[in-house]
Design a protein around this nucleic acid. Structure first.
Length: 565
RNA sequence: AGCGGGGUGGGGCAGCCUGGUCAGCCCGCCGGGCUCAUAACCCGGAGGUCGGUGGUUCAAAUCCACCCCCCGCUACCA
């Protein structure tokens, strides 16, 4: 089986916060796990850099959109690397391969008869010389009289609006009053795929229930055609004859990045023919880690586009969507500086602390809440006390009483039962990952350390080492082996910790390229371990908050890591 | 407003599809044990009748109806 693992393309109008990290880490855990199962995996994503918000942001800064996204993309690549997200290709929507792919793709869709043209009237700002998306028109709500509502939905009374409903409409960018102007757009004939989409979704067992029911109810309500083009300047030029000056709507091109990123990967490696093997072979499964807000783009728009191309692309195998991560009971907010941003996080603690927290609070069924108190508790009482301490008590015992050398003894029944249990738990953890239940999988992985602590306690090797040496030999062999098992099982979640364990155990190779099967291989007696050092340290929420405030005060650059590195 | 998801001991969650053997897990709390280990580890205990109301059933957290609260989407924000 081949796998294409992806997550939603981060929109890079600003440095992303921990919410974005949920999708990145989730996808990474899955990709790493699949690799260690010996599967063929391609893990891709990229920066989503077109669209109005970026155009506006660039306008505000007085630079070109390309300059803005060049810089953001570079910075983002750095963050991804520091968080240990193991992309095979992290690209961007400005990639020439992507641009050409999207243009060719839509010409093909048009040739297949799924594109039509229609004229409509839209608000246009003469000052900025651009058509305004609904969100970028402000005005007074005709229902409740709220004066600062936007053109899609009233922020006060919640009623749905169209921008032309607004009293005194204003351009949200410059404040001048927009005029109605005629414009022509190219539409994707989505309703024609209702039947195919319905049967795809109904028959597709792997799709989770939430994605299914939401998508089916949308189809039941009736799908509408969607405009493919926009009047934006910043974006991929629309390829249709007569569409000069228009660009492709960001969402209608960003979802195709999942395909183009694979194409780019193989072209770069000089084997473009492998692209078909990944995207057109029924033995390939594609999985998407996304937030709940964009399920329909992955269960409806993307499959419909793939169908419309008639290229035989494989349809999404699973769309694993999470709810939202909030911050201390509120939404993350850049404006109010509420939340934690990815670069700030790295200045406070190493990536694995965050990876652990992110997965253990992964909002799989309902919104989750980051609180400093919870963060401190999880890091200290679980990561530190359960995992860190188990590893450390075993390794330091081996170092101080055995000179760091794995002793020679046979396993007794109790200790081989223990190792059998560890392997079973490991297997369960892996199977939870395969079923996209990452939170549960991490819990299982941690419970190996829990088993280990119990085993070590019951066997009391500190007593045996004086009076019954051969029994404590056995205890240590089994316990050290459990540490080795942990180094495998934890790798998808905590890759940096897995590396540390690897070096501490003085194993050959690295924990990333060996398969899970290797965890069964016993450490040889006489093997010398590398070094012993606590894996983690405890954190103090108060201290972290103070440090964060200082960082925000002292580092003026928007790119924190560039100034400090 | 419509649609989708959620509401389970002090906190965080699982169970619900396929009704009984489910009230389970982690943290915290209380008591005990141990001393190899980062005052870490192990064992035991207290604490919930599963948002509300009504219904189906021999039996409901689990199915049905209505209601309340939170989140998201509703197609030109991404």
């Amino acid at each position: 089986m081949r796998w294409i693992v992806t997550c939603a393309w981060p929109y890079i109008n600003a440095v992303p916060h921990l919410g974005t990290l949920v999708q990145l880490v989730s996808a990474d855990v899955y990709a790493r796990c699949m690799r260690k199962l010996g599967e063929e995996v391609l893990f891709v994503s990229g920066s989503d850099e077109h669209g109005t918000p970026i155009e506006v942001e660039a306008l505000k800064r007085g630079i070109s959109p390309k300059d803005l996204t060049d810089r953001m993309h570079r910075y983002f690549c750095k963050l991804i690397d520091l968080f240990g997200i193991s992309f095979d290709n992290y690209t961007r929507t400005e990639s020439p391969v992507h641009i050409k792919f999207v243009q060719d793709f839509y010409l093909k869709v048009q040739k297949n008869g799924y594109i039509f043209v229609e004229e409509s009237e839209q608000l246009f700002c003469p000052e900025d010389e651009m058509f305004l998306p609904d969100r970028f028109v402000e005005g007074t709500c005709p229902y409740c009289g709220y004066e600062k509502t936007t053109g899609d939905q009233c922020e006060k009374c919640g009623r749905l609006l169209t921008p032309t409903d607004l009293i005194n409409p204003r351009c949200a960018i410059c404040g001048s009053s927009p005029k109605l102007k005629k414009t022509k757009h190219w539409y994707f004939d989505l309703p024609r795929f209702e039947g195919h989409l319905r049967s795809y979704i109904e028959k597709h067992e792997a799709l989770p229930q939430n994605a299914k029911s939401m998508s089916l109810s949308m189809i039941d309500e009736g799908l509408r055609s969607r405009a493919v083009t926009r009047d934006n300047r910043w974006g991929i030029p629309a390829p249709f004859p007569g569409s000069e000056g228009k660009t492709i709507y960001v969402w209608m091109e960003a979802v195709l990045g999942y395909v183009s990123a694979v194409k780019e990967y193989f072209e770069r490696r000089g084997c473009p023919e492998k692209f078909d093997l990944f995207w057109k072979d029924p033995d390939t499964r594609s999985v998407y880690f996304i937030g709940k807000d964009n399920i329909p783009f992955h269960t409806i728009i993307l499959p419909a586009l793939l169908m419309a191309s008639q290229e035989g692309y494989v349809l999404p195998y699973n769309v694993s969507s999470t709810e939202f991560l909030n911050y201390e009971g509120d939404k993350f907010s850049k404006r109010f500086r509420r939340g934690i941003w990815m670069d700030e996080a790295l200045l406070l603690l190493e990536a694995d602390y965050w990876r652990y927290y992110i997965i253990s609070t992964r909002p799989e069924n309902k919104d989750a809440n980051f609180t400093w108190e919870d963060f401190e508790a999880k890091i200290n009482n679980e990561l530190n006390d359960v995992l860190g301490n188990f590893v450390h008590r075993v390794m330091s015992f081996l170092a101080s009483r055995y000179n760091g050398i794995v002793p020679n003894a046979d396993l007794d029944e109790e200790s081989s039962d223990f190792l059998e249990r560890c392997l079973e738990v490991a297997k369960r953890s892996i199977s939870y990952i395969e079923r996209f239940m990452l939170k549960e999988a991490l819990k299982e992985a941690m419970s190996i350390a829990r088993e280990g602590n119990r085993f070590f306690n019951e066997r009391e090797p500190w007593r045996d080492v004086k009076v019954n040496r051969s029994r404590s030999d056995t205890t240590l062999i089994a316990s050290t082996q459990a540490v080795k098992i942990i180094s495998h099982v934890i790798e998808p979640f905590l890759p940096f910790t897995a590396e540390k364990l690897w070096r501490m155990l003085n194993l050959e190779g690295d924990p990333h390229s060996t398969t899970f099967d290797d965890m069964r291989i016993m450490l040889r007696s006489g093997h010398t371990i590398g070094y012993v050092k606590p894996l983690f340290e405890k954190v103090s929420a108060e201290e972290l908050k103070t440090r964060l405030e200082r960082i925000r005060r002292e580092i003026k650059s928007e790119f924190l890591l560039e100034e400090t590195s």
